[in-house]
Design a protein around this nucleic acid. Sequence first.
DNA 1: TATTTAATTAACCATCGTTCAATTAACTTG
DNA 2: CAAGTTAATTGAACGATGGTTAATTAAATA
Lengths: 191, 191
Amino acid sequence: MAPRKAVAQELTREAIIDAARGLFQEKGYQNLSMRQIAQTLQYSHGALYYHFKNKAELFYAIVKQDFSLLDDTLDQILSRQLEPSEKLRRVLLGFIEFGLTHRSHYEIMFLIRDKEIQEFVDDGPSHSYEKFAKAVQSLSKNRLGIQTIWSLFLALHGFVTHYCRNQQSYEEVRSMAEYHVEFLLKGLLHE
Amino acid sequence: MAPRKAVAQELTREAIIDAARGLFQEKGYQNLSMRQIAQTLQYSHGALYYHFKNKAELFYAIVKQDFSLLDDTLDQILSRQLEPSEKLRRVLLGFIEFGLTHRSHYEIMFLIRDKEIQEFVDDGPSHSYEKFAKAVQSLSKNRLGIQTIWSLFLALHGFVTHYCRNQQSYEEVRSMAEYHVEFLLKGLLHE
DNA sequence: TATTTAATTAACCATCGTTCAATTAACTTG
DNA sequence: CAAGTTAATTGAACGATGGTTAATTAAATA
């Protein structure tokens, strides 16, 4: 009744995740169907259920990758040999760059609101924020209070959110991002 | 075949809009059905189509009201008898208060990404931003540049966005909002 | 009473998540 | 290399839900 595809390469979890991530970002969780994902991959929708139990599990697999990617990005900046003030600048800029380079990751992590999804995400976002906050605090030699760091985060978040929504790349807004970071650092000097 | 309801009060465009606004904010455009709106109103879904051509038209009617509401909020603050620096503080705080008090408006205006919707919205958001930017510029006696004002907006936007997503009211986060505004004003002093 | 207005409900067609029997490509074993 | 086995894929089918339309009818109005 159904011929199996002559596979050049078999469908893998990774291939599905990679295709689905961009699509989820573009359309949102509810507005992207398993059938659309399958169509993008040129496979039947049934094939997806061989690799993932259901839509939620596929989505969760993506989110999990996303959070560890931000962690890695921050770690990489922190491990460089630079002055603390320069490191701080790069952490802030790095956060924006992460958000706009991996828009789909960022949106899934910090923007999507959906009850079915919130259950999965758990404390992923707060864990990522803690990492960011601790980095900023130590780089400022403990001069910045919790509230200030939180304001800083929200200010960066606004930048990323806006340009995520506008579908613009980091390269396109780089100079504006640098300005934004300078603007925020200026305020921090006078804490 | 179908008995008409013994109406205590007839369904009106306004009643539909008022009920739908909150629901759209809560669930998003795609995830809210005409049937759900009707159920909330205790009417049949067909009744909605007597008052609105379709779902998009209903949504558009809401958005149109939203933009003018933000304009009014800003106008009201600007017309008060206060020092410019205090007015500036209140404009920033007022923007946050607007966003969190009228979450549904704000989300529809600045957060929802949806092709079907973007067509309607046109230049509503940019018009609202222009109003905000001009107010800030004049209140700072033209000391703030375009880029700085834009950064300021994005920083406020991040605050509103975050707490919109978290479903928190303005009252709940008021002191944090005040801190955020102070944080931003501090940076402005040293432009 | 005749007409208009405002509502109801059934029905149509599309899409979705998910399941599952059928099918076959690829691999294993003798 | 043949036969059997496993793994991967297909597509039909099920039950929900959705937007929208149209026939119908009750209430209000003239």
